[in-house]
């Protein structure tokens, strides 16, 4: 990696100040950024670690019943502490990467990066979650803007993600054989007012909602409702590990499996 300055503030206010400088880059758990730096593919002047900011860590229940996950909360913590209230989210977190990744990587880091094959974006979108930053609240539907693109401004810090807790939900991931990121991952969440389906790994546009499946499942939450339903291959990613047609096919398979597994 190239040389850089390093700061590790312990409050949000200090972090904001540290990030105000030219070419400053926030560092969450570093599970994407550190390998990128090691390959010399990024050259920040300054890294600002969010790791010491206690106020953005932890899992709690909001007054409205939403599950509130601090932006700096690791996957391992979510896997443990969300298990009772939102088991599908906890299960998702429990299957990201390996133990080392889960004990360093954070939810804020994951959705700020918005890797098109990351797991969390599917949950955030399917849950209709709210991304809370140091400046504002952003609805999930407005947050994801395409591969590695989000609504975040420069220097904006994700402090919390608020997940309305569904009646039933499940995340089903079909792993890319090498990276074990999602080749296709589908998060299905059933709420009183309807079903939301978030799909990751599949689309050139990053995470998306499969609205046709949502409509069918809102009318009848059963695998039969989405039997035979398929996404077109247009706009799906194609690479060594799967063609666009294969990914489109897997969206249907994983959706059905998520409905069957939802609890």
């Amino acid at each position: 990696m190239y040389a850089f300055d390093f700061e590790r503030p312990s409050t949000l206010a200090e972090a904001e100040k540290a990030l105000a400088g030219e070419d400053a880059q926030a560092l969450g758990g570093g599970q994407t950024l550190i390998p990128t730096l090691k390959q010399r593919l990024a050259m920040p002047e300054k890294l600002v670690s969010l790791g010491a900011i206690q106020e953005i860590k932890g899992v709690c229940k909001g007054d409205d019943g939403a599950l509130c996950v601090g932006g700096g909360t690791t996957h391992a913590t979510v896997a443990r502490e969300a298990a009772a209230d939102y088991p599908a989210l906890a299960a998702l977190a429990a299957h990201i990467g390996d133990p080392a990744v889960r004990n360093r990587g954070t939810i804020g880091g994951s959705i700020a990066n918005n890797d098109p094959a990351a797991c969390y974006p599917a949950a955030v979108l399917a849950s209709g979650a709210t991304v809370v930053t140091n400046k504002r609240k952003i609805a999930a539907d407005d947050y994801f803007k395409g591969m590695f693109e989000t609504a975040l401004d420069e220097g904006e810090i994700i402090t919390e993600v608020r997940f309305p807790v569904p009646e039933k939900a499940s995340y089903q991931k079909f792993e890319q054989p090498a990276s074990r990121f999602a080749l296709v991952g589908v998060f299905v969440a059933k709420y009183a007012d309807g079903v939301r389906v978030g799909v990751t790994g599949a689309s050139e546009g990053g995470v998306f909602r499969w609205t046709e499946a949502e409509a069918a499942l809102s009318a009848d939450f059963s695998t039969g409702a989405v039997e035979g339903m398929a996404r077109p291959a247009d706009g799906m990613m194609s690479d060594l590990h799967g063609s666009a047609a294969y990914r489109a096919h897997l969206v249907g398979v994983m959706t059905r499996r998520a409905v069957a597994a939802a609890s």
């Binding site: 054989p177 090498a178 990276s179 690479d239 060594l240 590990h241």
Partner: peptide, 23 residues
Amino acid sequence: LLENCVYDESGQILSASFMDYAM
């Protein structure tokens, strides 16, 4: 089942890390 070292037409290795080369 897993491993594959793949070159594209220009000779770049498409599976040049464990992100794409499945051990």
